[in-house]
Amino acid sequence: KTYTFRVRIVDEETGEEKEIEVTAKSEEEAKKAAEELKKKYPNLKVELE
């Protein structure tokens, strides 16, 4: 079973919002993916929905 999570990304500089879908095998995995995004884009606000 896989879970699909919507991750909302807000670029703090431009105020631009993007939504991406993360497919993960567990909620834990999705959280890790969101953390990776935060590391990659430090000025983005990442929200897991």
Results as ranks from 00 to 15, higher is better:
residue 47 E to P: 04
residue 23 T to V: 13
residue 28 E to F: 09
residue 29 E to P: 00
residue 30 A to Q: 02
residue 3 Y to D: 01
residue 6 R to F: 12
residue 37 L to C: 06
residue 36 E to T: 08
residue 45 K to A: 05
residue 17 E to P: 03
residue 31 K to V: 10
residue 41 Y to H: 06
residue 17 E to H: 08
residue 17 E to G: 04
residue 15 G to V: 00
residue 14 T to E: 01
residue 11 D to F: 03
residue 5 F to L: 07
residue 43 N to C: 07
residue 22 V to Y: 07
residue 20 I to G: 01
residue 43 N to A: 06
residue 15 G to Q: 03
residue 7 V to N: 00
residue 16 E to V: 08
residue 25 K to G: 13
residue 28 E to T: 07
residue 21 E to F: 15
residue 3 Y to K: 05
residue 24 A to P: 00
residue 20 I to Q: 02
residue 38 K to W: 10
residue 43 N to S: 07
residue 4 T to I: 13
residue 36 E to H: 08
residue 41 Y to N: 04
residue 18 K to F: 15
residue 12 E to I: 13
residue 18 K to Y: 15
residue 15 G to E: 01
residue 46 V to G: 04
residue 23 T to K: 11
residue 26 S to R: 01
residue 17 E to C: 14
residue 23 T to A: 06
residue 49 E to T: 13
residue 13 E to Q: 11
residue 12 E to N: 08
residue 10 V to H: 06
residue 11 D to Y: 03
residue 39 K to D: 05
residue 48 L to K: 05
residue 2 T to K: 11
residue 23 T to S: 10
residue 21 E to S: 09
residue 25 K to H: 14
residue 6 R to H: 06
residue 22 V to F: 15
residue 27 E to L: 15
residue 48 L to N: 04
residue 27 E to D: 04
residue 13 E to A: 12
residue 40 K to Y: 07
residue 43 N to Q: 07
residue 47 E to V: 15
residue 30 A to H: 01
residue 2 T to G: 07
residue 47 E to G: 05
residue 38 K to T: 07
residue 27 E to N: 06
residue 47 E to I: 15
residue 22 V to E: 00
residue 33 A to F: 15
residue 25 K to I: 11
residue 48 L to A: 06
residue 25 K to C: 14
residue 8 R to V: 10
residue 32 K to Y: 11
residue 49 E to N: 10
residue 46 V to D: 03
residue 33 A to H: 10
residue 27 E to Y: 15
residue 20 I to E: 03
residue 22 V to Q: 01
residue 24 A to Y: 12
residue 26 S to Q: 01
residue 41 Y to S: 03
residue 42 P to F: 06
residue 8 R to P: 01
residue 36 E to Q: 10
residue 9 I to C: 07
residue 33 A to M: 15
residue 24 A to G: 08
residue 3 Y to I: 04
residue 3 Y to W: 09
residue 11 D to V: 04
residue 1 K to N: 09
residue 35 E to R: 08
residue 23 T to E: 11
residue 36 E to L: 12
residue 41 Y to C: 05
residue 26 S to T: 12
residue 33 A to N: 04
residue 18 K to Q: 12
residue 3 Y to R: 05
residue 21 E to Q: 10
residue 35 E to T: 08
residue 34 A to R: 06
residue 5 F to K: 00
residue 36 E to P: 01
residue 24 A to F: 14
residue 8 R to Y: 12
residue 5 F to C: 04
residue 16 E to M: 09
residue 37 L to N: 01
residue 11 D to T: 02
residue 22 V to D: 00
residue 29 E to S: 04
residue 46 V to P: 03
residue 35 E to P: 00
residue 17 E to R: 06
residue 29 E to A: 08
residue 14 T to H: 02
residue 12 E to V: 11
residue 34 A to F: 15
residue 30 A to G: 04
residue 3 Y to C: 08
residue 12 E to G: 06
residue 4 T to G: 03
residue 21 E to R: 06
residue 18 K to V: 14
residue 35 E to D: 10
residue 20 I to T: 02
residue 6 R to D: 00
residue 28 E to S: 09
residue 5 F to A: 01
residue 20 I to W: 12
residue 48 L to M: 11
residue 43 N to G: 12
residue 26 S to F: 02
residue 16 E to R: 05
residue 40 K to E: 07
residue 36 E to Y: 12
residue 37 L to E: 01
residue 13 E to F: 11
residue 47 E to N: 08
residue 41 Y to F: 09
residue 45 K to W: 08
residue 9 I to M: 08
residue 8 R to D: 00
residue 36 E to D: 10
residue 38 K to F: 13
residue 32 K to Q: 11
residue 44 L to H: 14
residue 21 E to A: 06
residue 37 L to G: 01
residue 9 I to E: 00
residue 47 E to R: 07
residue 13 E to M: 11
residue 1 K to S: 07
residue 20 I to R: 01
residue 28 E to Q: 09
residue 18 K to E: 08
residue 41 Y to M: 04
residue 19 E to C: 15
residue 18 K to N: 08
residue 48 L to R: 04
residue 26 S to K: 01
residue 32 K to S: 08
residue 32 K to N: 09
residue 4 T to F: 11
residue 14 T to C: 04
residue 14 T to G: 02
residue 29 E to H: 04
residue 13 E to L: 13
residue 3 Y to M: 06
residue 23 T to G: 03
residue 33 A to V: 15
residue 10 V to C: 09
residue 46 V to I: 13
residue 47 E to S: 12
residue 10 V to E: 02
residue 22 V to I: 15
residue 25 K to T: 13
residue 28 E to G: 08
residue 16 E to S: 05
residue 12 E to P: 15
residue 35 E to N: 10
residue 31 K to E: 07
residue 11 D to A: 01
residue 33 A to S: 05
residue 47 E to H: 11
residue 1 K to G: 08
residue 28 E to D: 08
residue 31 K to A: 09
residue 35 E to Y: 10
residue 39 K to W: 07
residue 26 S to H: 03
residue 10 V to Y: 14
residue 39 K to T: 06
residue 1 K to C: 15
residue 43 N to D: 06
residue 49 E to S: 12
residue 49 E to Q: 14
residue 33 A to L: 14
residue 35 E to K: 06
residue 38 K to A: 12
residue 43 N to T: 08
residue 8 R to I: 12
residue 48 L to Q: 05
residue 38 K to P: 02
residue 15 G to A: 02
residue 25 K to M: 12
residue 30 A to R: 02
residue 25 K to F: 14
residue 42 P to R: 04
residue 19 E to K: 06
residue 17 E to M: 13
residue 26 S to C: 06
residue 27 E to W: 15
residue 4 T to A: 05
residue 15 G to D: 02
residue 5 F to S: 00
residue 34 A to G: 04
residue 29 E to R: 02
residue 25 K to D: 12
residue 44 L to V: 07
residue 43 N to L: 08
residue 15 G to T: 01
residue 22 V to R: 01
residue 24 A to V: 12
residue 30 A to N: 01
residue 40 K to D: 04
residue 42 P to H: 05
residue 48 L to C: 13
residue 42 P to T: 06
residue 41 Y to D: 02
residue 15 G to L: 04
residue 20 I to L: 07
residue 7 V to L: 11
residue 27 E to R: 13
residue 44 L to A: 14
residue 38 K to H: 05
residue 31 K to Q: 12
residue 5 F to R: 00
residue 42 P to L: 05
residue 41 Y to I: 03
residue 46 V to S: 04
residue 6 R to A: 04
residue 19 E to P: 01
residue 6 R to L: 13
residue 43 N to M: 07
residue 41 Y to E: 02
residue 42 P to S: 07
residue 43 N to W: 11
residue 34 A to Y: 15
residue 5 F to Q: 00
residue 9 I to D: 00
residue 42 P to I: 05
residue 35 E to H: 07
residue 27 E to F: 15
residue 14 T to F: 01
residue 31 K to C: 13
residue 1 K to D: 10
residue 42 P to V: 05
residue 5 F to P: 00
residue 4 T to V: 12
residue 18 K to G: 04
residue 2 T to R: 11
residue 10 V to M: 08
residue 12 E to A: 10
residue 15 G to C: 05
residue 1 K to H: 08
residue 42 P to K: 06
residue 47 E to Y: 15
residue 36 E to G: 06
residue 37 L to T: 02
residue 17 E to Y: 14
residue 29 E to I: 03
residue 37 L to Q: 02
residue 4 T to W: 12
residue 18 K to S: 10
residue 34 A to H: 07
residue 14 T to I: 02
residue 23 T to F: 14
residue 49 E to R: 08
residue 39 K to E: 06
residue 29 E to F: 04
residue 19 E to R: 11
residue 24 A to D: 01
residue 35 E to G: 06
residue 25 K to A: 14
residue 5 F to W: 13
residue 6 R to S: 05
residue 9 I to Y: 12
residue 7 V to R: 00
residue 3 Y to S: 02
residue 44 L to S: 12
residue 45 K to I: 12
residue 46 V to C: 10
residue 43 N to P: 03
residue 31 K to P: 01
residue 45 K to G: 04
residue 29 E to D: 11
residue 46 V to F: 12
residue 11 D to R: 01
residue 16 E to D: 06
residue 6 R to V: 14
residue 49 E to Y: 07
